[in-house]
Nucleic acid binder design. Structure first.
Lengths: 347, 347
DNA sequence: GGCCACTATGACAACGTTGTCCCCCAGCGG
DNA sequence: CCGCTGGGGGACAACGTTGTCATAGTGGCC
């Protein structure tokens, strides 16, 4: 069909048909089933036969076709699907790493994809993974509608949502204590005398952003400093919008003396905007990040562990794969305030 | 076989056999081939028939089995395998993101795995991906032996190595200009009057570490300051070994006044060791990293773009998939020195 | 010597899909 | 009335593997 190029272990070769068990069998002078037995380390093959088969496998560069195997066996494909927001974000790459780690221990490969907060893309990825018959699905939801997963779940594919809850299905979920975290941040700042504490968060249609806002509000009320609309700025933030917001907070009749940042990206934007500014407001950021301790002042954060999140979710997934069919669980991982300096400035 | 639980869109259900085209066909009262035609948008199906089929698909929650499809069609599985050192490392997660991006544009999914610098693990991952019949393979080599890939390459799986070259096969490779980068770093420091410039790098059996050492040596020679063994510390580094090394460099008869760090992890270790130290040596780090500009002093680095690396490698891979079978190429991406302060300290 | 147990191996179907080829039937021109 | 055309649809094999079952040979034991 295609011409075989000269040979030699170099690239740029014409496509050659891959050897199958049949080819191996023919070369070794045995039946295909015997090859299968050898490949799968099944007992009942004479050592000398096995040797012949192995030699043939080696000679032909045979590699068993997992598509065929999975099709025939019908059981596990040995893959886990992971849909997240952006693998490029250090937080999610930490999650990915943890998922991979555990999947590896359980003999699974990870297929991942980034949704970029696009619900359509999330759905596309998840369903594509289902078509590939992944053994389970880990999803950082971008949207609020997940009923498209019902047939998959019903067909036995366990799904665990992480970092954010699913929209309209009941399923296992692993979250971090967003509310508790911002409550603690506000309480901490108030304890240092701050009464004008601002909050910069993501768009409130993102679950975590909304939760953190709620925590902020709750913290303000508990601290007896009241909730003031003017101190809150939600919505997608980029470097310049953060700069503008900081200006505004500074120019209020009663300026903000402290800020709670809703996530690591916002924290970084704030730090960049404040670079070189003498009068800095106190700052507590949600999410820890590398080098936070080396900045001046070092940045106080609400820390939670990306790998703990990935691990908890993956453990839950494997529990389901192991047959646990208790009612769906919701796990909330604790956060902790790490005081480093930026949040311990007195008002 | 198994009992069907009450129904309802909840989790924790018993496993149910997945609907196949056959089931859909039966329900819609057509042949399986017609279902196939509908699923694949093939022409020649009466609209009313198609509608019946779609309704059945919906009712049964049918999702076509890609294993079977790929097996039957024999062509592309729509997947790309990516073996890297550690997805958790921001540099590689940037690479991953870029790869994913381009793969997506070309309708491919990415399967990835971390080798953790273990050649055995690298091989295991790569061969596993080959068993899954990935359309192509992107590898950040951990070891020096890659002849195990020859049968795969011969069978038509294109392989592109990135960040480091392959050991013993000729194949497409995308690298960054490691030597040029450290030459530039040393030249830059020498231009600011430094004559005692130290180099801290990874173990020299890692390609990039070795190259960067070569560049350092070359830079020293070119700058006329000579190469002094005592100023070099290679090998795996952790926080404490870096601290010890810095001590030693400080206590030399002629102490080091400047340091070149071989990668981002080492740079960070150095920064941590130097935290709070008044007399800081000048520092240039290989690899850029987030917040480098916000530290004090801001850190001068040799920057290169993770996504450019990922993109170049993936583009090359797709060119091969598109039929390009010119001789293997080696692409070297440029680096650039970003002066921020830490490297502009005069001796 | 006949029978049994056991080892080594093979024939064959089946997994779910798609490519190939074939059939039926309505409509139409001669 | 016949043959031809073309649209709509189906039967069947095949992709590469593995599970099930069958069988040939071998040696031991009564």
């Amino acid at each position: 069909m295609t011409t075989l190029s000269p040979s030699g272990p170099v690239a740029g070769q014409r496509k050659v048909r891959r050897a199958t068990m049949n080819d191996v069998a023919r070369l070794a002078g045995v039946s295909i089933k015997t090859v299968s037995r050898v490949v799968n380390d099944e007992p009942g093959v004479h050592p000398s036969t096995a040797e012949r088969v192995l030699a043939a496998i080696d000679q032909l560069g045979f590699r068993r076709n997992l598509s065929a195997r999975n099709l025939r066996r019908g059981s596990s494909t040995g893959t886990i699907g992971l849909v997240l927001e952006d693998v490029g974000n250090p937080f999610y790459s930490g999650v990915t790493r943890a998922v991979e780690e555990i999947a590896r221990l359980r003999g699974r490969q990870v297929i991942s994809g980034s949704s970029d907060e696009d619900p359509g893309r999330e759905r596309e990825l998840a369903l594509e993974f289902c078509s590939r018959r992944v053994d389970g699905l880990l999803i950082v939801p971008a949207g609020l509608q997940h009923s498209y997963l019902v047939p998959e779940m019903r067909a036995g594919t366990p799904v665990v949502f992480l970092d954010r809850p699913a929209g309209d299905v009941v399923a296992d979920t692993v979250l971090v204590d967003n509310i508790g975290g911002t409550v603690e941040a506000v309480t901490h700042l108030a304890a240092h005398g701050h009464r004008r504490i601002a909050f910069l968060g993501d768009a409130p249609d993102i679950f975590t952003a909304n939760e953190r806002l709620r925590g902020y509000r709750e913290g303000c009320v508990r601290a007896g400093i009241g909730y003031h609309e003017e101190l809150v700025a939600m919505g997608p933030h980029d470097e310049s919008s953060v700069a503008t917001t900081l200006q505004r907070l500074q120019n209020l009749r009663e300026p903000a003396t402290a800020i709670v940042a809703g996530n690591n990206r916002i924290t970084v934007h704030i730090l960049r905007s404040l670079a070189g500014v003498a009068e800095r407001p106190a700052l507590v950021g949600f999410d820890d990040f590398e080098l936070a301790d080396l900045l001046s002042p070092p940045v106080t954060v609400i820390a939670h562990d990306a790998s703990a999140l990935g691990k908890a979710a993956t453990d839950l997934l494997f529990a389901r794969l192991d047959g646990d069919n208790s009612p769906p669980r919701r796990v909330v991982l604790p956060v902790r305030l790490v005081p480093r300096g930026s949040g311990e400035v007195h008002a």
